[in-house]
Simulated scan of single mutants.
Amino acid sequence: MFVSFEGLDGCGKTTQARLLAEALAADGVDVISTREPGGTPLGEEIRRLVLHGDHVAPWAEAALYTAARAQHVAEVIRPALGRGATVVCDRYLDSSVAYQGGGRRLGVDAVLELNLAAVEGLLPDLTVLVEIDPETAAGRVGDRRDRIEQDLGALWTRVDETYRELAARFPGRYVVVDGRRSIADLAAEIRERVR
């Protein structure tokens, strides 16, 4: 099974992805826990460039994330799925669709098509959207912001709207959970949905 976690920065998705992977491993499941951007040496270098470097043009940003994702799928995700492991990924292509397609206004369908081509159509079996409003997200992130997180306001509102659009567009794949709930309650709900 391939499970991805999505949501605004500060929503709690990283914590929930880790807790799900730990719970599955405790149940004896062969589980790979990974993240995007990152997950491979190339992906980690792209992560550093995009999140902590100088200005990156919107299409360059989208292309770099897509390149990192293509490598991640080829090197980590497909091999793990091929051997029967469960993959839990903190962000996947929906992040690019939300942040670059919606947030940067490059077009939801254009960024989705670019990413689907790069990953040869591989989509998660389940995408958990940890939903919180942009104001709460900004408060949780605080002052420890990378280049993307610094662009609050209208961008984050557009990202939030795009995530909601994706959840409505792909109801068979998306599970939407309330990120304002306690960590333990949220983890229990997600485990139940995955099972």
Rank of each mutant, 00 (worst) to 15 (best):
M1I: 08
S4P: 07
G10P: 02
G10W: 00
G12H: 01
T14Y: 00
A17R: 07
A17M: 09
A17K: 09
D30I: 08
T34Q: 10
T34K: 08
R35C: 15
G38I: 14
P41R: 12
L42H: 05
G43N: 04
E44V: 06
I46W: 03
L49V: 12
V50S: 00
L51D: 02
H52I: 05
H52S: 13
H55I: 09
V56R: 00
P58R: 03
P58S: 05
W59L: 05
A60C: 13
E61W: 01
A63W: 01
L64A: 13
Y65M: 15
A68N: 04
R69M: 08
V73W: 04
A74K: 11
I77K: 05
G82W: 15
G82M: 14
R83G: 13
G84A: 12
A85S: 15
V88C: 11
Y99P: 00
Y99T: 01
G101C: 07
V108G: 01
A110C: 10
V111T: 06
L114Q: 03
A118G: 10
P124S: 07
V130H: 03
I132W: 00
P134I: 04
A138I: 01
R140D: 04
G142E: 06
R147D: 02
I148A: 00
I148P: 00
Q150E: 15
A154E: 15
T157E: 14
R158K: 12
V159R: 02
L166T: 04
A167E: 08
A167T: 05
A168F: 06
P171L: 10
G172K: 05
R173E: 09
V175G: 05
V175Q: 11
G179T: 01
A184M: 06
D185K: 09
D185F: 11
A187D: 09
E189W: 12
